[in-house]
Write a protein that binds this DNA or RNA. Structure first.
Length: 477
RNA sequence: GGCGGCAUCGCCAAGUGGUAAGGCACGGGUUUGCAAAACCCGCAUCCCCGGUUCGAAUCCGGGUGCCGCCUCCA
């Protein structure tokens, strides 16, 4: 009856036991807002959403925080060999506008996409650029405690050798790192593995004053500073993509614990990467689908959501359009059942009582969710149950009971009862004419003409369906 | 070299000692003017070898193969 999650820190399944009874505080590593978020980003954000929904459903108070990374970031080696360019700035130069403007624009796209995929809104979306003082404060604390040191004209580095637990999350202990090191050492750093907390660079477009000179914060410090501010020193869950385990989250631990916040995060949960057509997808390779790409292909928000959550978050997922089509069909059947039930609900009650079977399914469903968010298993329960319901469609009260069951499942899944705010899609006037002509032909029982018009529409990617309620169309995909 | 993960039907995938969920595709059927949609029926012994056990996809040992991370990356 308790939610169990795979904790990267302990490398095992752990029961979720709130730091503060009855309350869960969760931090989700959010978007870097310098380009369109892609489906891989959203797989990770959806992990946060599934957790949020599961915790909400279990009656715990949730506080969910997702950061907006609106500072671009050099790597320290990029700085060292001068080959790097901040991505946000590169984009700003390319598009000839202010980097803050770009960041706001992509932040809006992120929020729009999140709404499209029916993510519940987090309680806070703190922006890195609006928390520079908090970061500076934490860096000062780290220097004071001997965990960091400034280098004149360069910035501030974290002294990894001062932090014994370094490597506790990723297994990349200093010993392990040094044995396989391939990093060129910057002689201004005490150790090759020291990472930047503050960087000084007068060419950088986004800059702030600091005790060490005008510059910008290192990549990892924002999450330490903002999680402390909004969730407190010790909190329950921190999520992100698997690539964040090292260095990002490892460094966060070093920073937060080093700054004296205490235990920091109890449970670290990481989503595995998503492949597209069997290949690793990355921003630099450009082989990625954004949410908008899939919308343009005719898929709707709930279908994309279904597809992205239907694979376990700790399994690598191979995204393909064929798979997406299959998933769209599967979720479509659930929605069709919902519609049939909503109609049957108002019909006369036949006196059947499905409560026992539905309750058993509900218990199974909940057990799957509790078991490290086993959505695939949970979907199995739903489909199984849906087939049983659809076989002999109940009416009246029994239909309502069935709907209640589906609603319960959909509190987590959010694919059956959600309504997509799809952009208006209209047929051309010619296509509309064909539709009308076909209706007339059908009324006149001129099947040959009707079929001919249907084929013509299909050639243009319009699929026609005749139902009792009337004829509808959709785009082929 | 270091750290970690995975291998179940054509494809996706659940399953953690008791005799293989579910989805897609496919085949057959009900329905339909014909289609579509919906519904019904059918469809696998779990990478290899050895071991533990009354019993293993599930545990142990050894192979083989695949993948991720090791300072851009969800």
């Amino acid at each position: 009856m308790t939610l169990r999650l795979w904790n990267t820190l302990e490398n095992k399944l752990v029961d979720l036991e709130p730091v503060t009874p009855g309350e869960i505080r969760m931090y989700n590593c959010g978007p870097t807002v310098y380009s369109d978020p892609h489906i891989g980003n959203f797989r990770s954000f959806l992990l946060g959403d599934l957790l949020r929904r599961a915790i909400d459903q279990r009656g715990l108070k949730t506080t969910q925080v997702m950061n907006i990374t609106d500072v671009g970031h050099f790597t320290i080696d990029d700085v060292a060999d001068a080959s790097g360019e901040d991505k946000l700035e590169k984009k700003a130069k390319e598009e000839g506008i202010d980097p803050f403007e770009i960041a706001r624009r992509y932040e809006q796209i992120f929020h729009d996409n999140a709404a499209l995929l029916h993510l519940r809104e987090a309680h806070q979306y703190p922006r890195a650029t609006e928390h520079i003082p908090e970061m500076i404060q934490m860096i000062e604390d780290l220097i004071e405690r001997g965990h960091a040191y400034p280098v004149d004209g360069v910035g501030v580095y974290y002294r990894v050798h001062s932090f014994e637990q370094y490597g506790c999350l990723s297994g990349n202990t200093l010993e392990n790192l040094e044995s396989g090191s391939r990093i060129a050492v910057d002689e201004r750093k005490e150790s090759a593995h020291d990472f930047a907390l503050w960087k000084i660079d007068d060419k950088h477009l986004m800059q702030w004053d600091s005790p060490w000179g005008r510059g910008f914060p290192g990549w990892h410090i924002e999450c330490s500073a903002m999680s402390l501010k909004y969730l407190g020193g010790t909190f329950d869950i921190h999520t992100g993509g698997e690539d964040n385990i090292f260095p990002h989250h490892e460094c966060e631990i070093a920073q937060s614990v080093g700054a004296g916040v205490g235990e920091f995060v109890r449970t670290w949960v990481h989503a595995r990467h998503l492949l597209v057509d069997g290949q690793k997808m990355s921003k630099s390779k450009g082989n990625f689908y954004t949410i908008n790409d899939l919308i343009e292909r005719g898929f709707s928000g709930h279908e994309i959501r279904y597809s992205l959550i239907s694979n376990h978050y700790r399994q690598p997922m191979n995204f393909t359009i064929e798979g997406m089509q299959g998933d769209a069909k599967a979720v479509g059947r659930l929605r069709a059942l919902r519609q049939r039930l909503e109609e049957a609900m108002n019909q006369d009650d036949e006196g059947t009582d499905l409560s026992e079977g539905l309750e058993a399914s509900r218990v199974q469903f909940d057990a799957c969710i509790d078991d490290d968010l086993n959505i695939s298993g949970a979907l199995g329960v739903v489909h199984d149950c849906a087939r049983a319901i659809g076989r002999d469609l109940p009416t009246g009260a029994a239909a309502r009971q069935s709907i209640d069951f589906l609603r319960h499942c959909d509190e987590i899944l959010a694919v059956i009862f959600v309504e997509d705010s799809a952009p208006d899609d209209v047929l051309t006037s010619e296509q509309q004419q064909w539709m009308q002509q076909r209706e007339a032909a059908r009324a006149a029982r001129d099947w040959a003409l009707a079929d001919q018009l249907r084929d013509r529409l299909l050639e243009q990617g319009i699929v026609i369906e005749d139902a009792e309620a009337g004829t509808s169309w959709s785009r082929q995909r």
